[in-house]
Amino acid sequence: MGSPEVVDLIRVLLILILAYLAYIDLRTFRLPDFITLPLIFTGLCFNSLPGLQFVSLQESIFGSLLGYLLLWLLNRLYRYIKKQDGIGMGDAKLLAALSAWLGWASLPSTLLIASITGIIGGIVWLRFNQKNHETPFPFGPFLIFAGIIELLWPQFLQNLLLSNLT
């Protein structure tokens, strides 16, 4: 099995794991550490393998740290203002895992896609469950959706936006 086949197999396995995580988050509002933490570690390990990596190891490490730190800081700011958590740390670990696999350059588009679909999905979720705007809903599936888009079509959003400018 050559490199392209191995990389495609890794993509399929990663998508299956992410789909399972989305299912867990939708059912339990939790992203378990026993899945997210190994996902970070395996992303870093995969990107340290020459010839198979999605991004360089440096981009992977920086992305993982930055991905976690962004959501951690956002939650700290929300907690300071509202005196309660606004986002779960499972989501921060998930973003760290996605960034460990896809690198730091994927963070802006991953967060933008997840935020837009999260707003739309959140409105639908709240209406469907007849809840008010203060009711929590799982954000992990939207991060996962955005991560899968970045995994399958890297830099999709940038290409889409830049093609419309010319």
Rank of each mutant, 00 (worst) to 15 (best):
Q53F: 03
A92I: 06
A97P: 05
W72V: 01
S163H: 12
T135P: 00
L165T: 10
L161Y: 11
H133E: 11
L18D: 02
I113C: 07
R79H: 12
L74R: 00
T36C: 07
I10T: 08
K83S: 15
I24L: 15
K82T: 05
I35H: 05
F142Q: 07
R79W: 11
V55F: 01
L71W: 04
L157S: 04
A97V: 02
W125S: 04
I87C: 09
N164V: 10
L98T: 00
G51E: 04
I10D: 01
G63T: 04
Y80H: 14
N132K: 14
L98W: 01
P32H: 09
Q155R: 12
T166M: 08
F137V: 05
L77M: 09
Q84Y: 08
L162G: 01
D85L: 08
L69A: 12
L112H: 10
F29Y: 15
A22H: 14
F128W: 15
L77W: 06
L165R: 09
F145V: 06
L165Y: 11
Q58C: 04
L37E: 13
W104N: 04
I87W: 04
P50G: 09
F41C: 09
F54G: 01
I61D: 02
D91C: 11
Q155K: 10
T42R: 02
Y23T: 12
S64F: 02
A19D: 10
P141W: 12
F62N: 10
A146T: 03
M89R: 13
W153L: 13
I15S: 04
P154K: 06
G67C: 05
P154E: 07
T166P: 13
L31N: 02
F145D: 06
K93F: 05
Q130D: 14
L102C: 02
R76G: 00
I10K: 03
F29R: 13
V124A: 13
G63P: 08
Q58K: 15
I87Q: 10
P50D: 12
V7C: 00
L112M: 13
V124R: 00
L165N: 05
E5W: 10
N129A: 14
Y80M: 11
F54C: 07
S109H: 06
P32C: 03
M89E: 14
N132C: 09
I15G: 00
L66S: 09
D91F: 05
F139K: 09
T117P: 09
I24E: 11
L9Y: 12
I113F: 04
Y68W: 13
A22C: 12
Y78Q: 03
S99N: 02
N129P: 15
P50R: 03
L157Q: 07
L151N: 07
F156N: 02
N132M: 08
T166R: 13
L151P: 13
G51D: 11
